[in-house]
Design a binder for these strands. Structure first.
Length: 791
RNA sequence: UGGGGCAUCGUCUAAUGGCAGGACAACGGUCUUUGGAACCGUCGGUCGUGGUUCGAGUCCACGUGCCCCAGCCA
């Protein structure tokens, strides 16, 4: 076995890895460093798991490093307990953050010095207005802010005040340090954000040493830089904060203490939430405090502590996180993805044993002596697919399949599941029925000869005969010996909420009735926990307590780490097995259909009806519109030009050297964005020259667009670019035909598909020819040729 | 409301302007001493309307919808 095989990628390619690839190619960074910065103010949940997967996974994939950093800049919210739990959860997930955990609080002295540096540069000031006043002065989204009377304090005064803030001379709220950026900015975040505030509180790490604390924005950028972070990844709600991040780095990076580190950049990704649950800390707290669950580690909770107690393995969480994609949109992930990841993980790691959860007594009337059978822990397919041919025992030892067995005793009295017997079987029922036969897993076929019922007519006991081995059976069911099996409690967990999007549903309700922040609690699933008393085969008593089992046909289980005791076993169901029978059985019941969930109402009508209406033009714009129309410009372009003087001006200049109608298309459709942003490096004459080439048929649009793109970047004359590269349109059939033929010959399968009716392939063939000719072929001519050849 | 972000199968996610692909789910089948797993197959999508182009999910315009920002929280 070669050890040089590359470690598999954790993160599939996405917009962030694209950025990193380019940064690496351009030599901007030698090594990729990311960071995962939770605030220790609560327990980690699946959202943290996904975010950490991105941070640690990307660092892993690029052979870089990821720091684990406690973002502990708010002493009032944070606790050592949370920090420890967070670290334990991250360790449980298996992440490697090197020799030490980082803490923002470790950098308080350095951060303080950088803040002083900003003051000295005249870029920060101590403001002394009240919080209410500051909010008022900040303005609103459509009202610019007003400078605080303290905004123009001298450097000396600011320094003096800031030092006295640190020294503890002022009460909470008396002063703050603010960055002097732009009070009129349309980005509210830039209206002189707070850098430091006074908080007289005990910090769980620094105690009473500090009474001023850096804000998120200040701490994030500076500690990233101090930690050598290159790519600072966070979620989408911080997009607006990036401007502060960059502003701070513009003024602090490159000089001590940030003269030895790469300049970090922030990139944002979309959050992922999960169906049938909530992940906001506030809402999770309500579930705990309202008694809807038994605690932060309740197995129904999406916290990592809850998932861990439920029995989910970290491997499953990672598998799940890896399957969830990264994009720039907030998204809600299908719960089936999580469940599927857990099942996939457990399928090959959880030995099979039998347990009966809802027992129905069976008497084997013709079995006089107990019979002990040896049962394999693993089904044939897991054994077959084992890479080394070995399979694990419950204690973890890997052994040959024939050794991975345990004894199970068949006795005169057994238990089977109540559901595995039916007096009136539905269609397709493959279990026991009166007079019918079924196979007891690995123990023989039985026939039901009779049954007893109680006063309500419920079946209480079956009388069965053990048949010869070769007897036919309707199906296979699991069982346990009534005398040998161990009683146990089974906790069956279901989804925490009855609807996939409890928060969205609650928001809808608010509109109709009185708004209530607790509305999401209405959707808590009253049946999210069902407790049943059953029996499990005695072999489990000898296994390690943390063994995860597949209880055959019942799902994956393990013992509750807290509540399960030697004399009183308690098993948590980690996840059910996929149960296609339950679905079909339910569908055949008309009553079930009536109770089926109604169509989703949470998603408002997304499709629009009615034609879009253009905003009305001012008289001036109307005049311009008519002017352009008169010049032969198409209406769609003319309308844009009428509203945008900048584009119109450019067009007027270019029109001195080329036909206006043609130019208008280019100005509006291809140059619009660049012209508006003022980034366009092309001249009107340059565009006109290009359009003339196009009009003369010397080049095609493909060549023109490519040249234009390059001209926009470099500021060179596009016609010059065309000339230099020797590009010109090839329309000559004699030249084109051999290329077309070659392309068709190279793709016989596509040709067949095209002839079979997949006409979309026409574009593929044209594209291939265009590539072959570096864009010089006349695409219309090529299209004709392809059509002609393919008949 | 000013600014910003975003919109592709039921869900998540791909597609230098050139074959709308993959995964999960669902459905059907094969196999199976688990109605599990595995294997094979099927179904199904570019928010809308225009425009540019030989060709648009991708570029342009106008709409629509969702999310974020007016904490001395993060």
């Amino acid at each position: 076995m070669s050890t040089s095989t590359p470690k598999p990628r954790l993160v599939s390619p996405n917009f962030i890895t694209e950025i990193i690839d380019e940064d690496l190619k351009a030599g901007r960074y030698k090594k990729i460093v990311t960071r995962f910065p939770p605030e220790p103010n609560g327990y980690a949940h699946l959202g943290h798991a996904i975010a950490s997967y991105i941070d640690f996974g990307i660092a892993h994939d690029y052979g870089g490093e990821c720091r684990l950093r406690m973002d502990d800049t708010n002493p009032e919210a944070e606790k050592a307990e949370y920090a420890e739990a967070l670290i334990a959860d991250m360790r449980w997930l298996g992440w490697d953050w090197g020799p030490r955990v980082r803490y923002a609080s470790d950098y308080f002295e350095l951060l303080y010095q950088m803040a002083e540096r900003l003051i000295q540069k005249g870029l920060a000031y101590v403001d002394s207005v009240s919080p209410e006043e500051m909010a008022r002065l900040r303005g609103t989204v459509d009202q610019p802010g007003i400078p605080s009377p303290y905004r123009e304090r001298s450097v000396e005064e600011n320094l003096d005040l800031f030092r006295r803030m640190r020294a503890g001379e002022f009460p909470n709220g008396a002063h703050v340090l603010r960055a002097k950026i732009d009070l009129a900015s349309p980005n509210m975040k830039l209206r002189d954000p707070v850098l430091y505030r006074i908080v007289h509180a005990e910090h769980y790490r620094t105690g009473q040493k500090w009474c001023i604390y850096p804000s998120y924005d200040f701490a994030q950028a500076t500690t990233d830089a101090l930690d050598g972070v290159t790519h600072s990844l966070c979620s989408l709600e911080f997009v607006d904060n990036r401007a502060i991040y960059d502003w701070l780095m513009d003024h602090l990076w490159g000089e001590p203490p940030l003269d030895q580190t790469p300049r970090p950049r922030q990139y944002e990704f979309g959050r992922r939430s999960l169906e049938y649950t909530v992940v906001s800390k506030r809402k999770l707290r309500k579930l705990v405090e309202g008694g809807y669950v038994r605690g932060w580690d309740d197995p129904r909770m999406p916290t990592l502590a809850g998932q861990r107690r439920r029995g989910v393995r970290p491997e499953a969480i990672r598998r799940f996180a890896g399957q969830v994609g990264i994009s720039r949109t907030n998204r809600t992930v299908d719960i089936a993805l999580l469940e599927g990841a857990i099942r996939d993980d457990l399928n090959t790691t959880a030995p099979r044993v039998m347990a009966v959860l809802r027992p129905l007594k069976v008497v084997l009337t013709n079995l006089s002596e107990p019979r002990t059978v040896t049962l394999p822990y693993w089904p044939h397919d897991v054994i077959r697919e084992s890479p080394d041919g070995l399979v694990p025992l419950p204690d973890g030892r890997r052994v040959k399949p024939e050794q991975a067995v345990r004894p199970v005793t068949l006795t005169r009295e057994l238990y089977i599941e109540q559901d595995d017997f039916a007096l009136n079987p539905p269609k397709g029922f493959k279990r026991l029925t009166p007079g019918g036969t079924v196979r007891l897993k690995m123990a023989g076929v039985i026939r039901c000869d009779g049954y007893q019922t109680d006063a309500q007519g419920r079946v209480t006991e079956l009388h069965c005969t053990l048949l010869p081995e070769e007897a036919r059976a309707a199906g296979v069911i699991h069982w346990v010996s009534a005398s040998e099996a161990v009683p146990a409690e089974f906790r069956l967990y279901d989804r925490l909420f009855t609807v996939p999007h409890p928060e969205a549903e609650a928001r809808e309700l608010e509109d109709e009735e009185a708004p209530d922040d607790h509305d999401f609690l209405r959707f808590v699933n009253p049946k999210s926990l069902e407790v049943v008393q059953g029996y499990i085969e005695p072999s489990v008593l000898a296994d390690p307590k943390e063994t995860r089992y597949q209880l055959e046909r019942n799902g994956y289980f393990w013992q509750d780490p807290l509540d399960s005791q030697p004399g009183a076993l308690v098993f948590n169901r980690i996840v059910t097995l996929k149960d296609t029978w339950a679905r079909t059985a339910q569908e055949s019941e008309p009553e079930a259909r009536r109770a089926a969930p109604k169509a989703k109402t949470t998603e408002g009508p997304r499709k629009t009806q009615g034609a879009p209406s253009e905003p009305p033009l001012t008289p001036e714009q109307q005049a311009r519109l008519e002017h352009f129309l008169a010049q032969g410009v198409h209406e769609a372009e003319a309308r844009v030009l009428a509203r945008e003087p900048r584009l119109a001006e450019f067009l007027m200049q270019a029109a001195q050297k080329a036909p206006m109608a043609l130019l208008a298309n280019w100005v509006v459709n291809d140059l619009g964005a660049a012209l508006r942003s003022g980034q366009a490096k092309i001249t009107p004459a340059g565009l006109a020259g290009l359009v003339r080439l196009l009009e003369a048929g010397e080049i095609n649009t493909r060549i023109a667009k490519d040249a234009l793109a390059e001209a926009l970047q470099t500021g060179r004359d596009p016609a010059e670019i065309v000339r230099e590269k020797g590009l010109k349109q090839v329309s000559d059939a004699g030249a084109l035909e051999p290329i077309v033929e070659r392309i068709l010959a190279q793709h016989p399968d596509k040709v067949a598909a095209y002839r079979a009716g997949k006409t979309g392939l026409l574009g593929f063939f044209v594209g291939q020819v265009m590539r072959e000719t570096q864009g010089q072929a006349n695409p219309q001519r090529v299209q004709e040729l392809v059509r002609q050849k393919l008949g």
